[in-house]
Amino acid sequence: MNSMSHALNHRLLILLSAMACMGVLTGCSIGKSETFTFTADLPPNFYYQAAAVYVPAKGETCTVPGGKNTHVGYNRHWPKDYKNESIVALYRTVSGCPLVISSIRLKIYGIYGEDRDDYSGSNATVVTREVIPPEFKKEFDPVGVSAFYGRCKWYFRTIGKTRVLRKLLICKDTDAEGNLTLGYPWAPYALNQLAGKTVKIKITIDKEEVPYMKDTWVKFPNGWKRCMGKSFEDQSAFCYGNYKDFSSYIMPDGKQCTIYPGCTE
């Protein structure tokens, strides 16, 4: 390729880049980062899955047929091929329609056993808008990182005729000091905040686990005992004031137990 052809190609690339910026949002400029990084600080054996959701940019009247390809997934096959950092595009064009990111829908997963089904997940989200009210707006530190927080808790129960123990994970939003606020973990950002920056979710886990349903287990100094209910076949097995008759249960690994979490008294 001669120097004249190389120069023409270079100018064409610049022109195409400029055209890609037009009609999407103000503030788009050549050479400016049009992505941001999402990452997570999670407890051991925790993972996240994410879906970046895109909608038509402001002023656009176009639509994407069936909404196809308006979501971009990350860590779909966790924990296999898991990546803790996800590079998220602010803008995309699908079916000729300029799109802008609207949210990142997150699922925080925790693994509690060795079997492939021994896990549970809870929701979190990042919301992006052109303008965020000042009282909700998240800030970035000097190196371009902004964090939001959540606290997760394991809830245990038994299922099935053999009373196998299963766990449910529920995560709630907190402030930086760990105080619970409202709802599941979430964070709002203005679009003009995000280019080239990093958004991070920080999750802690409560040490104490509690029963998922009230009046089904009784707490003792050395752990929890499962109420018998009407009989061992009673699926709900509420205590109903009977705090003397208890049943065994089976841990996820198949071990027969009488008290949780220590298994044997």
Results as ranks from 00 to 15, higher is better:
residue 261 P to C: 09
residue 121 G to S: 14
residue 153 K to R: 13
residue 69 N to K: 12
residue 151 R to T: 09
residue 221 P to G: 06
residue 159 I to C: 10
residue 198 T to G: 06
residue 163 R to G: 10
residue 229 G to E: 07
residue 243 Y to M: 09
residue 116 R to A: 14
residue 63 T to L: 02
residue 140 F to M: 09
residue 138 K to D: 10
residue 182 L to R: 04
residue 81 D to Y: 07
residue 243 Y to R: 04
residue 175 D to A: 07
residue 254 G to I: 07
residue 117 D to Y: 11
residue 171 C to R: 01
residue 53 V to W: 00
residue 150 G to D: 08
residue 77 H to I: 14
residue 174 T to I: 07
residue 80 K to M: 06
residue 258 T to G: 11
residue 9 N to G: 11
residue 247 S to T: 12
residue 96 G to I: 02
residue 176 A to N: 03
residue 255 K to S: 15
residue 75 N to H: 05
residue 103 S to I: 01
residue 34 E to H: 08
residue 83 K to H: 09
residue 227 C to A: 02
residue 29 S to G: 12
residue 60 E to D: 11
residue 143 V to W: 00
residue 129 R to W: 01
residue 135 E to Y: 05
residue 152 C to T: 06
residue 262 G to P: 05
residue 8 L to H: 14
residue 148 F to A: 07
residue 55 V to S: 02
residue 122 S to N: 04
residue 159 I to D: 04
residue 133 P to A: 14
residue 95 S to W: 00
residue 119 Y to R: 03
residue 83 K to I: 05
residue 262 G to I: 15
residue 190 A to K: 00
residue 9 N to P: 00
residue 161 K to G: 13
residue 156 F to I: 04
residue 60 E to V: 07
residue 216 T to L: 01
residue 213 M to T: 03
residue 59 G to Q: 07
residue 114 E to P: 02
residue 80 K to T: 02
residue 233 E to L: 10
residue 203 I to M: 14
residue 228 M to C: 13
residue 227 C to H: 01
residue 204 T to H: 03
residue 74 Y to E: 05
residue 116 R to I: 15
residue 210 V to H: 01
residue 83 K to S: 12
residue 11 R to E: 15
residue 113 G to Y: 00
residue 37 T to W: 10
residue 174 T to Y: 08
residue 236 S to C: 03
residue 19 M to H: 04
residue 85 E to Y: 00
residue 190 A to S: 08
residue 1 M to D: 15
residue 144 G to H: 09
residue 29 S to R: 05
residue 83 K to L: 03
residue 120 S to D: 12
residue 116 R to Y: 06
residue 39 T to Q: 09
residue 108 I to H: 02
residue 32 K to W: 06
residue 249 Y to F: 15
residue 148 F to T: 14
residue 145 V to Q: 04
residue 72 V to I: 04
residue 175 D to T: 07
residue 252 P to G: 07
residue 3 S to Y: 06
residue 216 T to P: 05
residue 120 S to C: 12
residue 263 C to Q: 05
residue 185 P to G: 04
residue 43 P to T: 12
residue 62 C to P: 01
residue 203 I to A: 12
residue 69 N to Q: 13
residue 162 T to Q: 08
residue 146 S to K: 00
residue 31 G to Y: 03
residue 255 K to Y: 03
residue 120 S to Q: 05
